[in-house]
Design a protein around this nucleic acid. Structure first.
Length: 113
DNA sequence: AGTCTGACCGGGG
DNA sequence: ACCCCGGCCAGAC
């Protein structure tokens, strides 16, 4: 499966497809998803897409996407995020993920795109 | 059209 | 490890 750099609906669909593949117990980042979806500078867009992801019927693990430093930057508007991660075995200290380097799941690498 | 604001990122200090 | 800054892009005024 491969995605081409094309903004708009295609990009959004690619983002959804990728996020759905993040396994429980692992976490990825907005920027990493953006790059895998073909937009090098699309991190903010991914963030926006995640923030609206609760609206539709689409069911995706938005809690498994955090910022590039392993911090739960969304916990303010998405409080359940932390509990969901912990229930999957991800250790969180403050709002920061422990062993970030080990828990990090990079779509580009894991999915050979 | 101009400006501000984000669930962002990388580099530099 | 922390903070700051400039760059990034789309949406809301």
């Amino acid at each position: 499966m491969k995605y081409i750099a094309c903004p708009g609906e295609r990009f959004e669909r690619a983002v959804y497809d990728i996020v759905r593949l993040v396994p429980p117990g692992r976490v990825t980042s907005y920027g990493a998803v953006a790059r895998a979806a073909g937009l090098r500078h699309g991190a903010r867009m991914v963030g926006r897409i995640m923030s609206r992801s609760g609206e539709g019927p689409e069911d995706i693990p938005a809690h498994r996407v955090v910022n590039s430093r392993g911090v739960l930057s969304a916990v303010g508007t998405f409080p359940e995020m932390r509990r969901r991660l912990e229930s999957e075995g991800v250790a969180v200290h403050g709002n920061r993920i422990r062993n970030w380097a080990d828990v990090f799941w990079d779509p580009l690498e894991e999915l050979s795109l």
